[in-house]
């Protein structure tokens, strides 16, 4: 029996922390996606937080899904596929659709579906030893949780095709050059940097919302008494 807390949810100082908590690999298996859905449904309340950070416990972000597990599940149809996979994909989309900033904080390896989750974040910052990639094609498979869409969106068609077809990884410096991550910090103080960034951005988002509100107010979409 797996422990129930393979993902932790914490709130501190109006920042939500989603922590992948099954070190060292923090794998994304069926159990992981069940817990993730529960946290999305029950725990995350954007009235309580102004920003969200996602990271892995220990040295790595996550090594992604175990392809042998996935193969077994798909072939035996334990869960209904591709419906089950679409559910996972929608769970990831939840983060890209959030109206507060979502920041991924990437230490160590971040591969396959782990990178697909990271691609759903609005901001990606990496520790200087991070390694990012979509290795699926080297197993005669392909990304299945948004990788073929969001990677194109973020790094452009040419770089995305190269990464997806060759399955080769980018280190932190290469990821920065490709625009896959927005900033690189020494891994020792990345948590501090992420939290600082989250707070700063959260404030700006609030200002932005206010501006939107004033704009609407001036254009008559909202009345004075709302």
């Amino acid at each position: 029996m797996k422990k129930l807390d393979s993902i932790l949810w914490e709130e501190a100082d109006r920042i939500g922390h989603l922590i992948l908590n099954d070190p060292p690999a923090n794998p994304m298996d069926v159990h992981f996606f069940e817990i993730l859905q529960q946290i999305i449904d029950v725990k995350i309340d954007i009235d309580n937080i102004d920003a969200l950070v996602i990271y892995g416990q220990g040295r790595h972000f996550s090594a992604g899904a175990d392809l042998e597990d996935v193969t077994r599940d798909v072939v035996t149809d334990t869960l209904k596929y591709p419906d089950a996979l679409c559910r996972n994909s929608r769970a990831f989309s939840f983060f890209s659709d959030m109206t507060i900033p979502v920041i991924a904080l990437i230490n160590g390896v971040c591969l396959g579906s782990a990178l697909e989750l990271v691609l759903c974040c609005h901001i990606r910052i990496a520790g200087n030893t991070a390694l990012l990639g979509l290795p699926e094609s080297t197993f005669d498979l392909m990304p299945g949780c948004g990788g073929t869409q969001r990677l194109v969106d973020i790094v452009g068609l040419s770089k995305a095709m190269e990464m997806i077809f060759t399955g080769s990884n980018l280190n932190a410096k290469e990821a920065l050059e490709a625009g896959l991550v927005d900033a690189v910090f020494p891994k020792t103080n990345i948590t501090t940097e992420a939290t600082r960034l989250a707070k700063g951005i959260a404030e700006n988002y609030q200002k932005h919302d206010k501006r939107q509100y004033i704009k609407k107010y001036l254009s008559g979409q909202v009345t004075k008494y709302e």
Binding site: V75, P82, C86, S89, L141, M142, P143, G144, G146, G147
Partner: peptide
């Protein structure tokens, strides 16, 4: 597009 991706993925797995 995400739905199609999931379908194509499962085809490759099978």
């Amino acid at each position: 597009a995400l739905k199609e991706e999931a379908k194509l993925f499962c085809q490759l797995v099978r």
